[in-house]
């Protein structure tokens, strides 16, 4: 017996929730960033599972674009972190609070 689409979607939901918790609880910007990657991958998994289930390649194409965006995000996001670290000697997001009232 092989796993159905529900198995994959459930797993995807668990991974996505864990990513969410990570984003909301961690303070290290790089860890938050990795949690976001985790969420993206959870979504990718459901895309591919559904693509398989529906017999259609469009979902996989979408995953491809998600990867492209993730790559771009990684480049820019990490560059931002380096810049920020240079100025503040830290990448704790609690130190990034200039944008308040």
């Amino acid at each position: 017996m092989s796993p159905t689409v529900y198995h994959y979607l459930t797993l995807s939901a668990i991974l996505f929730s864990m990513g969410t918790i990570g984003v909301l609880t961690r303070r290290n910007a790089i860890v938050i960033f990795m949690c976001i990657e985790l969420m993206l991958n959870a979504v990718n998994l459901s895309f591919i599972a559904l693509s398989r289930h529906l017999g259609n390649l469009d979902g996989q194409i979408f995953v491809f674009f998600v990867m492209a965006v993730a790559a771009a995000e990684a480049a820019v996001g990490l560059a931002l972190m380096i810049t920020f670290f240079r100025n503040r000697e830290s990448i704790e997001v609690d130190d990034i609070n200039l944008l308040k009232w």
């Binding site: 984003v23 997001v93 609690d94 609070n97 944008l99 308040k100 009232w101």
Partner: peptide
């Protein structure tokens, strides 16, 4: 309302 603009990323994400 301005106190909602805490400047903390977590609040915004939440």
């Amino acid at each position: 309302l301005r106190f909602t603009q805490s400047g903390f990323v977590h609040n915004y994400a939440m």
